[in-house]
């Protein structure tokens, strides 16, 4: 189901959660918003926001919100979204996503400062594609820096380096 009908997609996610949440015995409620308001500075423009809440919220957010991301993955896959459409549906719980956005933006700023000071490339910890994108976008405005993702699959991470360092790398010094 490509996301041309947001309301149908929202209903699909609601029906899915109505089956999964009780079957798993999770004490969670959810609210689904189509075309949610997003903060001005957010690089993400989701078409559908699914907010989970309730007594099991701490479990949802444990280990870097692994359970939150797992629910999101199952929902995205069941909607048959192409990977470039994955940003259209976002799961959140207790504003975890906006907190991460702030953390990652700050971390990107610190990394930029450090790379300029030391001249050495800086590698972030491995992150999801969604989080790597936030880091890339946060550093895009820094014209003297260069970012790229390295590593495979779950171990993929962002590397920041000086642009001139990139070109110098090939010449023998």
């Amino acid at each position: 189901m490509p996301l041309d009908d947001k309301v149908a997609a929202a209903k699909h996610i609601d029906a899915l959660l109505k089956r999964l949440i009780p079957a798993g015995g999770f004490q969670l409620k959810w609210r689904i918003t189509v075309d949610p308001a997003v903060p001005e500075n957010s690089p993400e423009r989701p078409a559908i926001l699914v907010e989970l809440g309730g007594p099991d919220s701490p479990a949802v957010l444990a280990q870097n919100a692994e359970l939150l991301r797992s629910f999101e993955t199952v929902a995205l896959k069941s909607l048959r979204l192409e990977s470039e459409e994955h940003d259209l549906v976002i799961f959140d719980c207790r504003n975890y996503r906006s907190g991460r956005l702030e953390e990652l933006t700050q971390a990107a700023g610190h990394a930029a400062e450090r790379v300029r000071r030391t001249g050495q490339p800086y590698s972030f910890s491995p992150m999801s594609a969604r989080e790597r994108r936030i880091v890339h976008l946060a550093l895009k405005a820094h014209g003297d820096l260069f970012t790229q993702s390295e590593g495979e699959g779950m171990r993929r991470y962002v590397v920041v380096s000086l642009k001139e360092e990139e070109s110098r790398g090939n010449s023998a010094r």
Binding site: G25, L67, V74
Partner: peptide, 21 residues
């Protein structure tokens, strides 16, 4: 799923749900 990502998600949901049991 790609690189086993979907299977990992199913296992994560199962693991979290079974903690209560």
């Amino acid at each position: 799923g790609k690189q086993g990502r979907t299977a990992r998600s199913i296992r994560t949901i199962l693991g979290a749900a079974s903690m209560k049991l």
